[in-house]
């Protein structure tokens, strides 16, 4: 059983963070970042995030295992068909990876390979069902596996997406498909978080609140313009704008959000964008 699974099962408040594999084969920087996160519950390894080509997260996550750091392998449906996904999943299990985060994947159009053909042979819910099948010992066609993998598979959710009911329908389908935990898109509106968690807690699957470190008012405005489902309220933008050192204010805001997570959710997922050394301050 992975540490993440154990801690969630024990009702502990879990904290995760994330690293991206390098573009190239020099893993020193990524490993150094991961080491700063070694005492968190687990570290996400992103999968060609933003549709930008990087080293395989499967390889990077396996390197983390070697270092004694527990990874969460992110896997998107954008770049692999159902055969590649299943064979990567079996490979992941053989390399000692248990935690997964299954995603649809950002559209290739805005990445660094906009001419690529996107796959999307499965969607994230179908991939979740596939993972469940593998752990039960069969592939998607029902063929018996020689040695079934063990996984602890999570999914993503955007709590502030509107219409709420449409977003929540998919959330519920993901729960039904066997999702064991959720990591959310960044949330800054506490009322909306309360509304979402009020509904989500009824389904009983642990939710890790996405906490994205705001470095400046400009960054907050950029997020509002460009990142779907992320809304930084004006009050927070004003706080960042008038702070003598905006980053410190951002860390304060992140710490407040972690506080709300402790009250409402089962964990927090930190996105610190180059300020990994401040994780301890954010956790307070």
């Amino acid at each position: 059983m992975s540490r993440l699974e154990q801690q969630l099962a024990a009702g502990q408040f879990v904290v995760t963070a994330e690293i991206a594999p390098p573009k190239g084969i020099d893993t020193a920087q990524a490993l150094e970042k991961a080491r700063l996160m070694a005492n968190l519950s687990a570290v996400n390894v992103t999968d060609n995030q933003g549709a930008n080509m990087r080293m395989s997260p499967l390889a990077m996550a396996a390197l983390l295992v070697r270092q004694g750091i527990e990874p969460i392998l992110q896997l998107t449906c954008r770049d692999r068909n159902r055969m590649a996904l299943q064979s990567d999943l079996l490979g992941a299990a053989a390399l000692g990876l248990e935690n997964l985060l299954l995603l649809s994947g950002d559209h290739a159009r805005f990445g660094d390979h906009p001419k690529a053909r996107s796959v999307f042979d499965l969607d994230s819910i179908q991939l979740m069902q596939t993972v469940r099948g593998l752990t039960e010992g069969t592939d998607m066609t029902g063929k018996i596996l020689h040695g079934a993998p063990r996984f602890f598979a999570g999914a993503a959710v955007t709590p502030e997406a509107e219409p709420f009911e449409l977003m929540f329908q998919k959330f519920a389908k993901k729960v039904q498909a066997g999702t064991r935990f959720f990591q959310t898109q960044a949330v800054y509106d506490v009322e909306k978080l309360e509304r979402f968690m009020g509904e989500a807690n009824r389904l009983g699957t642990p939710v890790l609140l996405g906490v994205l470190l705001l470095k400046s008012a400009r960054m907050a405005e950029f997020l509002n313009r460009n990142i779907p489902g992320v809304r930084v309220p004006q009050a927070l933008i004003d706080r960042l704008a008038s702070a003598p050192v905006p980053l410190e204010e951002g860390i304060l805001i992140a710490r407040e959000m972690v506080g709300h997570a402790r009250r409402l959710c089962q964990g927090a997922h930190l996105m610190t964008l180059g300020h990994e050394e401040r994780i301890a301050d954010i956790l307070g």
């Binding site: 950002d106 997406a161 449409l166 998919k170 389908k173």
Partner: peptide, 18 residues
């Protein structure tokens, strides 16, 4: 993305992420 089970996280105010 040709998804079959509801919207992705990229939906924003009813518009498509792509």
């Amino acid at each position: 993305k040709g998804l079959l089970n509801g919207p992705c996280g990229g939906m924003e105010e009813g518009k498509c992420e792509a």
